[in-house]
Design a protein around this nucleic acid. Structure first.
Lengths: 338, 338
DNA sequence: TAAATTTTTGGCAACGTTGCCAAAGTATGC
DNA sequence: GCATACTTTGGCAACGTTGCCAAAAATTTA
């Protein structure tokens, strides 16, 4: 027994094939009586439409591909959920295509790749090879999320402004500044995220003639933050650590620092000030000030831009930049110095 | 200008459409001369095949869907790379469908979901709702990876045996046993992984009349391990921590423990013994013994099983169980007791 | 009641591909 | 040189769907 098609349904219901199609697509001008007959016929034969035929006919897939790195941070979770929510409401389904290793990027040059079996493409990758290599062989809408490129529709976060915002807060506290930076991973081109945040921070500080008393480097993780905190203690040794304001370029780093310094008896917001980036829930819970990024909103906007390109045929390139907001917490309350 | 099709190519090359098709599909009995003509015609018009038409005609998509949780642990990275490697060689492309939130699981009941636009389905989820809910509306091969269910082809790891293996090693060292367990997350059904490992450990210990002197619980992360280590120090206080053998149910936990106890002056392999699970590179680097899981091999096997079901039509349900191997490191070297 | 109008329906074609069959072309054997 | 075999090629149909058009049915109007 082969999978039933519209003609099978039509035969059972005693109608024409196009009538079945009309019922399936909610066309007007169908008598309730025939609609019911068709519906029950669909039920009895267990009909499900053949998507390939539908796509062939219509030239559309009702699918959107998302190209993204395989890092399972909460960031992508939030972003994807937001994107999916919007696109789902408009009848689009979502498939993910992870960037597995640099050599696999070659695959994206093949116009026959599954990735391109979609009506639109969302790219959330800072990978320069993806962004600055040849344009994908895909003449349908492409939107960049959390990335930026003049030739594509982009929805991104202003990391430079975020850096500036952090520096401004720093200035208001009149304390020595410690910068906790993220090193370039070997073999990997530097992610523009940290580069931009750093640039923002240093730009504002420089304008005010301030230089960090020390700059630490650690991978952007909680453990990295702990290492950096230890570096700081070692560096200060044997001198006591004076009150300072640490700007960590990510919330994970800030969390690690806070936890590690706590075991040395130092409390953020009491003995030193601390802030991070991303506006994560973890930072908020830990009472750490953070420059927040509206991740879900960016996801929704990216989906909206894609829908616009998909349905409304917007011709000019759309660039949406999201500004940072400050998520204040006890960790940056002005110290009562003695 | 519309996208060129085989007939366009055929017209340019001065041949029939089916000849173009034959060239595209590497059929035999094509003269080199016409093949060249067709090839250059394809080049000049920039032809790329329409996958929807191809799928409609052939009833196949040359695609495999992977259903998996959105946790971006290195585990899934390795697994996916292995799966992709095998399937790619056989001409199959891979699309990922993340399990975003419990409510989205409902989507998998829709037979029209993009997920099912594939020739086969790989499910790598411990989520009981996925495994024990109604069978997906998909009458093509389904293979479970890193999960187990009597009704599906499954490729999985014997976590009970892994637990046993850990316990055996423990016994040989004749030290008090500390078990570092993973708690049930609220609202979430317990992942069978830790349940099985725990069962294996406790089973062997019990047979030898041994009970852990203390059982700690922490979420399976490095930070969780650090918390657990602190718990242990608190618990032992004011008594000094005697030499013990800690079995942590994941490598991340073990890593956290090691790092935290180090700051208390305790060295794994010198003052206490420690082991984890997963065989991660991080554990190996840190000198921590681990019960290893052949992740890449499991991925390859899962792909092979799927290919078998796809091409060879294997009728009986295939179950492949992978046994643990011990990845020994200094952290479990016999202590020279004083 | 017949004509005009509107609603509802079926037939046909086409989306782009490939398998099948038959026809045309080429080579081999007697 | 002609029959036989083999190679290469083109035409046609079909995969399942939906849009268009015209036909049929139902409804309104005169």
């Amino acid at each position: 027994m082969t999978k039933p098609s519209v003609v099978d349904v039509a035969r059972i219901a005693g109608v024409g094939a196009s009538t079945v199609s009309r019922v399936l697509n909610n066309h007007p001008n169908i008598s309730d009586q025939t609609r019911q007959r068709v519906l029950s016929a669909i039920e009895t034969v267990g009909y499900t439409p053949n998507l390939n035929a539908r796509s062939l006919r219509s030239g559309q897939t009702q699918a959107v591909s998302v190209l993204l790195p395989m890092t399972g941070t909460p960031f992508y979770d939030t972003l994807l959920t937001a994107i999916h929510g919007v696109l789902d409401q408009h009848g689009y389904d979502l498939a993910l295509f992870p960037l597995l290793g640099a050599q696999r990027i070659r695959r994206f040059k093949d116009p026959g790749a599954l990735l391109y079996r979609a009506d639109g493409l969302l790219i959330s990758s800072q990978n320069p090879e993806v962004l600055y290599g040849s344009r994908p062989p895909f003449n349908k809408p492409i939107v960049l999320v959390d990335a930026h490129h003049p030739q594509y529709h982009s929805v991104h976060f202003n990391n430079v402004a975020a850096g500036r915002m952090a520096a401004e807060l720093t200035l208001s506290r009149h304390l020595p500044v410690v910068l906790l930076d993220v090193p370039v991973r070997p073999g990997d081109l530097e992610s523009p995220v940290f580069l931009e945040r750093r640039a923002g921070v240093l730009d504002v500080l420089q304008r005010h003639g301030i230089t960090p008393i020390v700059t630490l480097q650690a991978p952007a993780s909680i453990e990295g933050g702990r290492d950096a905190a230890q570096q700081l203690l070692d560096w200060a040794h044997p001198h006591p650590v004076a009150p300072f304001f640490m700007v960590a370029l990510s919330d994970d780093l800030a969390l690690g620092v806070q936890r590690h310094l706590l075991s040395a008896g130092l409390h953020a917001g009491r003995d030193y000030l601390l802030m991070g980036f991303d506006g994560s829930a973890a930072a908020a819970e830990a009472g750490i000030t953070s420059v927040a990024q509206p991740v879900a909103q960016m996801g929704r906007t990216a989906a909206d831009v894609l829908l616009g390109a998909l349905e409304g045929q917007l011709k000019t390139i759309t660039q949406r930049t999201f500004a940072p907001t400050l998520q204040e917490a006890p960790s940056t309350q002005a110290l009562t110095l003695m």
